[in-house]
Computed example of a mutant assay.
Amino acid sequence: MMLLMQIAGDTAKQVVDTANHALTQPGVAKQDLRFGELLIAGGWVMIPLGILLVLALVMFFERYFTIKKAAKDESSLMGQVKASIIAGKLDSAIALCRNSNSPLGRMLQKGLLRIGRPIKDIEGAIENIGKLEVSKLEKNIGIIGIVAGIAPMFGFIGTIAGVIKIFHDISTTDNISMGTISGGLYQKMITSAAGLIVGIIAYVCYQTLNMMVDKVILKLETDAIEFIDLLEEPGK
């Protein structure tokens, strides 16, 4: 036990002395870290992390503009459909919904085509179309959530690979110095940071899209209730 403690103490002293010597060396100039060099130092793990980041961003912007289009104000459509129903122009109301090419328009169109049937049937038809429209909006959002979950895991794999590299270099060179272990430390820390950064970006994108979808769902439900209330008014 005493022998192991002495070896550990000598090893720690050697590492500290090597670091102090490097810091106090008069001829050593301080070098700035470059982004490209950091990526290379991260090793092969940076490749899947880069792919995951690009995938998350592509999915995010594609879904963002799709959901934003679905969330546009449809108050004018609702007003025109309501006016057509009150005036008894059912065909005109259906044409307005068909030409709108929006989730609300498709929901109202399905409800208008069911006029004459019991209100429960109309509600069921609108609800089914609403679920279909929401599923279209949520398409591929789950992929971004998966990226947010597995990116830090890839960073952890890079950490393990960095530790393995440190011990491998020590075993092959039989030398414990900052120069020997620096490569593994670079890989260990860079991949951990990169995995966390990619995971955070993907998580923010995922939650942003979910909040946008929730707002669209709330708006569609409100308009659907207004439409059903209109049909239940006396004389309709």
Rank of each mutant, 00 (worst) to 15 (best):
I225L: 11
I144M: 04
S171T: 12
Y186F: 12
R34Q: 12
T159V: 06
A151R: 00
I150A: 05
A151F: 01
A12Q: 14
E37V: 12
E127N: 14
I129V: 15
L77F: 09
F154V: 06
D73Y: 00
S182N: 10
S84G: 08
E62N: 13
K82S: 15
I164S: 08
S192M: 07
K89T: 05
K120A: 14
V213S: 01
T222G: 05
N128D: 15
H21K: 15
Y186R: 07
V45N: 01
E232W: 07
G88Q: 03
R114M: 13
G235E: 02
E138Q: 07
N175R: 13
G155L: 03
V198F: 04
A224Q: 03
P26C: 03
A22K: 11
T172H: 12
K110Y: 08
F61T: 05
D223Y: 02
N20G: 10
D229Y: 10
I157T: 10
I197Q: 03
G79L: 08
M5A: 15
Q187D: 07
L57P: 00
V16G: 07
S100D: 11
N210R: 07
P152L: 02
R114W: 09
A95D: 09
Q187M: 11
G149K: 14
F65N: 12
L77W: 09
N20Y: 13
Q14E: 14
L39R: 00
E123P: 01
L33N: 07
C97G: 02
I85S: 02
S102V: 03
T172I: 15
T11E: 10
W44Y: 10
I228T: 01
Q14Y: 10
R98W: 10
T222I: 05
V216T: 01
L4H: 13
A194P: 06
P152C: 05
E127R: 11
T180C: 11
G162Q: 02
V28N: 11
